[in-house]
């Protein structure tokens, strides 16, 4: 039940973000400060989530060497620059990770 409530609230907030500008309730131009800060928001949420998924820090330990997730993520960064394609990045990153985990 709780899961459904969270899902519906997430849907509601997403819809409102898309609808409010089309509602006719806002002025034509947003204040510059709001316009400027909105462009940073997706980045500053997604980058910490990437970093957290790479298990670089676990408790008080730091894992930089033999951290295959970190290496594969760096390869995926390079793949994104070259291919600019979500699927290619996932495949190259995943293949690199499987290869390093099994053969190094």
């Amino acid at each position: 039940m709780t899961m459904w409530i969270i899902i519906i609230l997430c849907g509601a907030i997403t819809f409102l973000i898309r609808f409010i500008p089309l509602s006719g309730l806002l002025p034509n131009e947003l204040p510059t400060s709001i316009n400027k800060s909105l462009k940073y928001i997706p980045i500053v949420i997604l980058i910490p989530m990437i970093i957290n998924s790479l298990s670089i820090v676990e408790g008080t330990e730091v894992y930089l060497f033999n951290n295959y997730k970190l290496y594969a993520a760096l390869i995926a960064v390079i793949a994104t620059i070259f291919f600019k394609n979500v699927f290619a990045t996932i495949m190259i990153g995943m293949f690199s990770f499987i290869f390093m985990s099994n053969f190094l």
């Binding site: 997706p42 980045i43 997604l46 980058i47 989530m49 990437i50 998924s53 790479l54 997730k69 594969a72 993520a73 995926a76 960064v77 994104t80 620059i81 394609n85 979500v86 990045t89 996932i90 990153g93 995943m94």
Partner: peptide, 9 residues
Amino acid sequence: PLTFIAIVM
């Protein structure tokens, strides 16, 4: 994280 990398870069 791989998906996010592709979106963020």
